[in-house]
């Protein structure tokens, strides 16, 4: 059967001297593994459409019970060039693609997740460099919701109480934030951090108020998300691109979000 779909290229592997396998997250068929014959040749008809972090329109021959489908055509819809042409943005985009690859099963259709991924990639390309972590956090948090394990951040996951400023916790196992009374069973977290993470759950990138970043502890967000996904995703997840991105961010001078916030 000939199939047409939009998709985001997550990564590619060399298959032979001239061909490669592409992992595509498609809007209509979920994650696909596609063989692109001749894609490594200089005059390949696929051109740049199979580069990671490319949103394109693809045609492939689909056959049931076959792990690898045959890719026939690829046409670029959006190459996300601002992401690919900047070292830090490329690292952020790679972390998003890796996470998307990891949290999805083959051929499990999820158009909402697809549109969240495109939103996040666009945002990586446009956001101020100082806040480059935010689209990655946004994608992780919203993608978790789209695949069914949204972290509970709007109140205490134990008793439902409103979160107070002075003492908060987060429990990866229980899947959310904890109030003053129950914070003892979780990791200690700051109100600003939790508040911003909860804010990321509710809206599209253009509705995110980056002034809420003031006071957010970057390392704490990373620690919370790591602990949460370690708990809820199969334990074999060893993120390489996310590690790369976080090392890159950690190597930069400590960014006091408050200092550059007016420029966002």
């Amino acid at each position: 059967m000939i199939c047409h779909t939009d998709g985001l290229v997550l990564r590619g592997f060399r298959m032979s001297e001239s061909s490669k396998v592409v992992v595509l997250f498609s809007r209509d068929y979920g994650k696909l593994r596609l063989v692109a014959k001749g894609a490594r040749r200089p005059k390949s008809k696929f051109g740049a459409s199979l580069e990671p972090m490319t949103w394109g329109r693809y045609v492939f021959y689909r056959q049931d019970n076959r792990e690898l489908q045959i890719l026939s055509e690829g046409d670029i819809a959006h190459a996300f060039e601002p992401v690919k042409q900047h070292y830090g943005r490329m690292a952020a985009g790679s972390a998003i693609c890796e996470f998307l690859d990891h949290i999805t099963e083959d051929e499990d259709r999820n158009p909402l997740l697809f549109s969240i991924a495109l939103e996040a990639m666009r945002w990586v390309g446009s956001i101020a460099e100082i806040a480059l972590d935010v689209p990655v956090w946004y994608f992780q948090i919203r993608a978790a919701g789209a695949v069914g394990y949204r972290p509970h951040m709007s109140g205490c996951v134990q008793c439902g109480a409103r979160l107070q400023r002075h003492r908060l916790g987060f429990s990866p196992g229980l899947g959310g934030t904890l109030c003053d009374k129950h914070a003892g069973v979780g990791m200690r977290v700051q109100f600003e951090t939790v508040n911003f993470m909860a804010h990321l759950q509710v809206g599209r990138p253009d509705r995110i108020d980056l002034s809420l970043l003031r006071g957010v502890n970057r390392a704490e967000v990373t620690r919370i998300l790591r602990a949460f996904f370690d708990q809820h995703i199969e334990s074999r997840y060893r993120p390489k691109a996310l590690d790369f991105f976080e090392r890159l961010r950690a190597a930069e001078p400590a960014l006091p979000y408050g200092a550059g916030i007016q420029d966002l």
């Binding site: 200089p42 051109g47 740049a48 580069e51 046409d75 670029i76 190459a79």
Partner: peptide, 16 residues
């Protein structure tokens, strides 16, 4: 563009 290829068939990234 690779030598000998068809310009009309090149994708936008390669052309840019």
């Amino acid at each position: 563009l690779p030598v000998g290829s068809d310009l009309a068939l090149a994708d936008q990234v390669t052309l840019s």
